[in-house]
Amino acid sequence: MTSTDATTSMFERIGGSDTIDLLVDRFYDRMDTLPEAKTIRAMHADDLGLIRDVLKRYLTEWTGGPKLYTPEKGHPRLRQRHFGFAIGDAERDAWMTCMRGAMEETVTNAAARQDLDKALSGLADWMRNRQ
């Protein structure tokens, strides 16, 4: 966050639940359709309904919104949960391509979008588990 927004959560800055819902829907729509996302799409079940809901709850909490993820799932343990998937630079980049396109469509505040991109880029980079 920028210093002027230190007391406002990212959740609020990007537009709250409605934006998170649209962001995740656009993200998975892109994953379903972009040729460059084929490898990460193959890591998911045919039906993306359940994972859409999980990501919506996770991002809501991660961005400072209501605690919707940890009461049901516990600590995110993202790397552990994704250990069975080979995630390298190509997979990280495909994930970020889908997410950046979704952010462009849904997060209207440019400064908030830039801050969210930086945070998600760090998260995506941290998720890599192979060279």
Score class of each variant (00 low, 15 high):
128 R>N: 08
2 T>G: 12
61 E>D: 00
35 P>V: 15
50 L>D: 11
41 R>N: 12
91 E>V: 03
18 D>T: 00
20 I>G: 00
96 M>C: 09
43 M>Q: 14
43 M>W: 11
95 W>L: 11
107 V>C: 04
24 V>K: 02
97 T>V: 06
40 I>A: 13
61 E>I: 00
108 T>I: 06
70 T>I: 01
32 D>P: 07
68 L>R: 05
81 R>F: 08
12 E>Y: 02
29 D>V: 15
104 E>Y: 09
66 P>I: 02
102 A>I: 05
85 F>K: 08
77 R>C: 12
109 N>F: 05
74 G>P: 02
74 G>M: 03
105 E>Q: 11
64 G>Q: 02
111 A>E: 12
90 A>R: 07
33 T>L: 15
131 Q>F: 10
26 R>N: 13
99 M>I: 07
102 A>V: 10
28 Y>L: 11
27 F>N: 13
88 G>L: 06
67 K>N: 00
109 N>R: 11
118 K>I: 09
88 G>F: 02
24 V>F: 09
71 P>H: 01
60 T>A: 04
60 T>K: 02
24 V>G: 05
107 V>R: 07
62 W>R: 05
6 A>M: 01
90 A>D: 07
96 M>T: 07
4 T>E: 13
52 R>H: 12
119 A>L: 12
97 T>A: 10
11 F>Y: 10
37 A>F: 04
107 V>Q: 03
108 T>A: 08
120 L>F: 08
19 T>K: 08
69 Y>H: 00
127 M>A: 07
114 Q>F: 14
100 R>C: 09
103 M>G: 08
28 Y>Q: 08
125 D>G: 12
81 R>V: 10
18 D>P: 05
97 T>H: 11
45 A>L: 12
115 D>P: 01
97 T>K: 08
131 Q>G: 03
39 T>Y: 02
81 R>H: 06
1 M>A: 13
30 R>F: 13
38 K>G: 06
128 R>E: 11
127 M>E: 07
107 V>F: 07
66 P>S: 00
126 W>A: 14
76 P>F: 05
5 D>Q: 14
77 R>H: 08
111 A>W: 06
109 N>V: 14
108 T>C: 04
98 C>H: 13
24 V>A: 12
22 L>S: 15
115 D>L: 00
68 L>C: 01
73 K>G: 00
120 L>Q: 03
22 L>P: 06
17 S>R: 06
48 L>D: 05
47 D>T: 09
3 S>C: 04
71 P>A: 00
103 M>A: 08
117 D>T: 15
80 Q>P: 01
42 A>R: 15
127 M>S: 11
40 I>F: 15
113 R>T: 01
88 G>M: 03
12 E>P: 00
31 M>P: 13
55 L>G: 03
53 D>T: 13
10 M>T: 13
91 E>D: 09
4 T>P: 10
49 G>C: 03
123 L>E: 05
33 T>S: 15
99 M>Q: 07
10 M>H: 11
99 M>D: 04
42 A>W: 14
56 K>E: 03
24 V>E: 03
79 R>F: 09
31 M>D: 08
3 S>K: 11
32 D>M: 14
20 I>N: 01
84 G>R: 04
86 A>C: 07
78 L>F: 12
96 M>N: 09
81 R>D: 05
82 H>P: 00
